[in-house]
Write a protein that binds this DNA or RNA. Structure first.
Length: 414
RNA sequence: GCGGGUGUCGCCAAGUGGUUAAGGCCUCGGAUUGUGGUUCCGAUACGCAUGGGUUCGACCCCCAUCACCCGCCCCA
């Protein structure tokens, strides 16, 4: 038997209906906040991610689905299934000169992402994200707006007790200075660091700070090292930006905590980063992660444009929300019980044109079997027997109450 | 990529070296050729994740593989 690939999942039935509800809510919440939907391709040039997400990130280093396409000829090029969607949206933003609309330019998206990781609870190789990206606003209001929208959406799907964590990474300038002072103090211990950290040392030394390796931890505990790590490195402008964000959140009554160790593994973030977590999720506790990325647009060839965004994992949202045992969405409005397949088919078609959910029996099954099926699949049954067809009326039976009444015109059905 | 656990029908499961692998739900058929959801009767694993091995004999023991779950790492 051919089975679904590791880390992928079929979604159907009630689960699909609940998913639909989540995405619908996202659409409502984000469009009413002025976000436009954007659908970008599922695969992009590999270079977009290595440059955009950053080649020191785990995502780019070991988790990408990368293919060489174009066959044996010299035009072969490398493409990658998107591991996240910010880079793709930024690419589209630049490619279509979306900066010519007046700022902010606000987009939301929903779709599958792909990362070659070991699957476990809350993590799959193909998973889905709902996210937003907002361009053109450097003020802290945009950071607050992003968090506000995320929280509003989570509230809309019934999740109101999640923990918001924020941090500031500083800007290019202060982050750069911090980086060099960390490299300087760690230089004598370089040989003792784990292999990952040796690589991080060159490419993104900040990530050494949250390495869980014992040897690395020991080095980070050294007095001289601690002194450098824990100094408040961000510059005055960044500090002010962060303070402003906190003030907005306070005024908006959004509860949050500050997590100085939250560094996040995507290279493009600067200044604000945030996560929204739930302790109910186990070790993959973040349902939402995001932050500011003021240099990404320029890095990918656009003009300098401040931006902020976030993404949420739909599978994780799904596992957190309260699920109904059954959904009326799955039920038909009418099941047509008839031994005359053609008449049933015609009636069903007329009802469907009016957006009434209707179905009928195609196997000429016995009357009682058809009614049994109706009771399972529909709210009401339309009985269309010889009598009804001949005299031109419908017998409509409410399958919950058992009441049956005579309906004389089609219009009364819809 | 590394540790630990699990794997019996569509779902939930009992079984544990020895004749035909319990049971429940769902599904299908019948009792009931125009009135269902209750009830009664019947059917459905040539098979116990997959592939090897040990044994007179294996769902049960051993090995490998795969998948899922729990951690690590990382992320949503």
């Amino acid at each position: 038997m051919i089975k679904a690939q590791r880390g992928t999942k079929d979604i159907f039935g009630l689960e699909a209906a609940i998913w639909q509800g989540i995405v619908q809510k996202a659409k409502n919440v984000f469009t009413s906040a002025g976000f436009e939907e954007i659908k970008t391709p599922i695969f992009e040039a590999t270079e977009l991610f290595s440059r955009g997400v950053g080649d020191s990130s785990d995502i780019v280093n070991k988790e990408m689905y990368t293919f060489s396409v174009g066959g044996a000829d010299k035009t072969a090029s490398s493409i990658t299934l998107r591991p996240e969607n910010t880079a793709g949206v930024v690419r589209a933003y630049i490619e279509h000169n979306l900066n010519r609309q007046s700022p902010p330019q606000k987009f939301w998206y929903f779709g599958p992402m792909f990362r070659y990781e070991r699957p476990q609870a809350g993590r799959q190789r193909q998973f889905h994200q709902i996210g937003v990206e907002m361009f053109g606003i450097k003020e802290a209001a945009a950071d607050a707006e992003a968090i506000l929208c995320a929280v509003s959406f989570l509230k809309a799907i019934g999740l109101n007790s999640l923990e918001v964590e924020i941090n500031s990474l500083g800007c290019k300038k202060c982050k750069g200075e911090y980086r060099s002072s960390i490299k300087e103090v760690l230089a004598p211990y370089l040989e003792k660091l784990c292999d990952d950290c040796k690589m991080r040392y060159e490419k993104n030394p900040l990530r050494i700070l949250d390495c869980k390796n014992e040897e690395c931890q020991k080095i980070l505990e050294l007095e001289e090292v601690k002194k450098v790590i824990y100094k408040d490195y961000i510059c005055d402008e960044c500090k002010e930006h962060f303070e402003e964000l906190k003030k907005y959140l306070d005024e908006l009554n959004i509860k949050y905590s500050i997590n100085k160790l939250m560094v996040r593994g995507l290279d493009y973030y600067n200044r604000t980063v945030f996560e929204i977590k739930s302790s109910a999720l186990g070790s993959q506790s973040a349902v939402c992660g995001g932050g500011r990325y003021d240099t990404l647009v320029e890095m990918l060839g656009g003009s300098p444009t401040p931006a902020v965004g976030f993404a949420m994992g739909v599978e994780r949202l799904y596992s957190l929300i309260e699920k109904p045992l059954e959904s009326d969405d799955l039920k038909l409005d009418y099941y047509i019980v008839s031994t005359n397949t053609l008449e049933a088919m015609k009636l069903a078609s007329k009802l469907r044109e009016k957006n009434v959910k209707a179905d009928y029996d195609m196997q000429k099954r016995k009357f009682s079997k058809q009614l049994e099926k109706a009771a399972k699949a529909a709210k009401k049954a339309i009985i269309l027997g010889e009598d009804e067809i001949e005299k031109g009326f419908y017998s409509v039976k409410d399958l919950k109450t058992g009441e049956q009444r005579r309906v004389n015109s089609f219009d009364e059905l819809v």
